[in-house]
Amino acid sequence: MDLRSLYNQVITEKSRSNEHRHPVDDCTCSLEGVNPSCGDDITLQLRVKDGVIEDVGFMGAGCAISQASTALMIDILKGKTVAEAKELIDVFFGMIKGEIGEDDERLELLEDAAALKGIAHTPARVKCAVLAWHTMEEALDK
């Protein structure tokens, strides 16, 4: 395994970023996501108004992959409509499962979150990468 494809610069930097690490004012949904086996534990807070995700923040702790993935997800989903967000979440899962190839243009939709594509080759860490996205999917369905 090429370790840098997993821990590339985007991921190591994002894992330490505090930009989205805050509670959300007037949040309409707050949801906790946990990986019991490894202890990744995040709480997402969203404010959705008229079908638009106005603000997202998170709190919690976990490995670099889970923390970077959360921050990267918020980067692209903030400001999107719920329908757009769900589509992007599907693209992300497709990338992680390896169903969307490296040169597929849909990867561009994920912007910097495409930096997590190396996870597809590291089955043991998939659950770290998808935690925030599953939690978001569940929150949007509420």
Binding site: Y7, C63, A64, R125
Partner: peptide, 10 residues
Amino acid sequence: DVHPHDVASI
């Protein structure tokens, strides 16, 4: 500063 799962992967 490094989570144990990252330590184990590295």
